[in-house]
Design a protein around this nucleic acid. Structure first.
Lengths: 195, 195, 195, 195
DNA sequence: GATGAATGAGGATTCATTCAT
DNA sequence: AATGAATGAATCCTCATTCAT
């Protein structure tokens, strides 16, 4: 992962990976079917294990909002803890035509399911709006968290990533608008207002 | 772009690109310094031009909310219009260690600046909350839009991407929470609520 | 020649030659059959013309020694005058497996014939030893002159090449040995003398 | 070396070299950094080793003339023994703008130093004239030997090269002129004598 | 006659993978 | 189980040459 994180999958050679691991080139092939399998196994184990942590943390909270908060917090925590994983995950996940795509899709689905579950529970609880298009809510949450992580990575991991969790969740819930009861910014026309 | 979109940069060969373009392999090198330069020139021209469209559309609206709506709408429109560009942009932009990184960073900054401008104007107008951490608002917007596009791309561009603009912006503004004046979901403790 | 002199035949491109000549690449092929032909024509014309000068100068002297002196002097003069020619000649002539080999061999033969003629005349005149192996005398003269030129070229043509002519010829004639009548260094055994 | 000798450096392909060596193309790169390095290593090892033989043989003789004789003889012997080395050395050494130039220059200097040493010793011994321009004496000897080898190579190595050593050295020492004490051919005017 | 864009064969080099030790 | 030398297919890139304008 260190090697993939530093140079990207295609720019990394099996020899470099073996060197970093302190074994001979051929030894890699005793544990991985081929170069691609290194990435596949990474997604299978390392990140799967992380996702299990996500599940645990979500389950520890009772309310939907609490679960959401926990999800975002643990997400940032785990990605901050293992920066190489974070880089490889963010980078290789966005390759559209990856061979490991099935692995990724499956894992991504797990994440989406957690969010669906949280949102639905929140709606039952009355804490989350009922007039939401679930698909978009998922994008909002996943996309925002992803981007917060990406920014942190590009900045070289200088600051504390986890501290972003709280304000981010708050933004999900309240939105950026001032919400006076008398004026609904979504007036249904969808037209930008011109003078 | 068609080739890069289909196979990714490293999986594409210059011969394939030449073939798709209907020219000889060597001809590529009359117009591009090397394989990498194909990507660099793409970012320099094609996407730069798209970003200018963004600016135009943003300027056409008067209010902050209108500008935001226009930005998101034109973003989705342009990426829907040119799917190959969309794929290459979304994919190669997320490679951390790209050579074209400077190009990308610069362009990304332009986008961020537009958002900053909109948010600040909205705060003056009174339409956008003043108690916001601007950095996170940027991530929220960019990340969400990116993710909406990614989902659409992974789905094979089956549905109308632009129709996502309106509900997405609405979500930015109002958030997902029900906001009864009596219950503030962000109670300041930052702790998930457990029973 | 400027290009060949700077970079060598194989390192030079037709485009560079055309560029130096201030014409388009294709124009080269109106005057030369192919890249190789540029070198062939160079040897045919430029150096052939130089060799004619050699002949003239040799003919201007009456005695063998005078002719030899003139040959060496004009050789150094001409090569000093046109340094690019000198470089190309010295470099490309030593390639064993050149296509232009016939050209070179023929020219080289002309030079050898001049020397043969001079030596034979000198023997008739009584100025040159009769007990000489002609083949080796030719190598002595050609090789020495060549090497004097090479050294000058490698030194960047800093000093006056022609001034080497006189001492060189003197060396040909008298040799490096002190020749006391009582001690013959070539004692016939051919064995190095050990104490 | 066989391949370089047959076709010259630029005309030889790495595939040919690998084929001649009976290994795969890629194997070459386990032992040589690149194509150029093959030549560099050749000059570093093979010819360096030959030059050490030169030194040995020179040291075995006591007198300057004996040393000179030994130097020329061993030079011709070694180059006759390994014809491929001879060809590559004679050919690639004369390329002015070679990358391996430093290697060559250094080696060439070794050779020149040996000659200087011999000449100076000869002058002390009284066997070699004191009124010599050392630089030209070096050219005389190196150039002549080189040319003798070249001629032999161009002739296809048909005859015995080593037999040239003795008459060549004799020529160095006595020169080609008949040296009557009463007539000095170098009369100081430097002018060819015309009738 | 001159041009220079286009060609595509050729060649150096890389690197995932194998397999005898 | 581990090694690492050897492999050779694959790929980027160069450049002599052509030919329509």
């Amino acid at each position: 992962m260190k090697v993939f994180a530093r140079q990207g999958y295609y720019q990394s050679t099996v020899a470099q990976i073996a060197g970093e691991a302190g074994v001979a080139d051929g030894t890699i092939y005793l544990y991985f079917k081929n170069k691609d399998d290194i990435l596949v196994q990474f997604f299978s184990f390392k990140t799967k294990q992380v996702f299990e942590r996500f599940r645990e943390e979500v389950d520890r909270a009772e309310t939907a909002i609490g679960k959401l908060r926990n999800l975002v917090r643990i997400h940032l925590e785990e990605f901050q803890r293992d920066r190489n994983m974070a880089i490889v995950y963010q980078t290789e996940t966005h390759q559209i035509s990856r061979m490991a795509e099935d692995q990724i899709r499956e894992m991504s689905k797990l994440y989406l399911d957690i969010i669906s579950e949280i949102v639905e529970r929140g709606q039952v609880e009355g804490a989350i709006r009922r007039d939401l298009y679930l698909g978009i809510v998922k994008r909002l949450i996943i996309g925002s968290v992803d981007e917060v992580i990406n920014t942190w990575l590009h900045a070289g991991g200088q600051y504390d990533l986890v501290s972003m969790a709280e304000p981010l969740v708050e933004l999900f819930i309240r939105g950026i608008g001032t919400q006076p009861p008398e004026a609904n910014p979504a007036d249904g026309t969808g037209e930008p207002i011109r003078s």
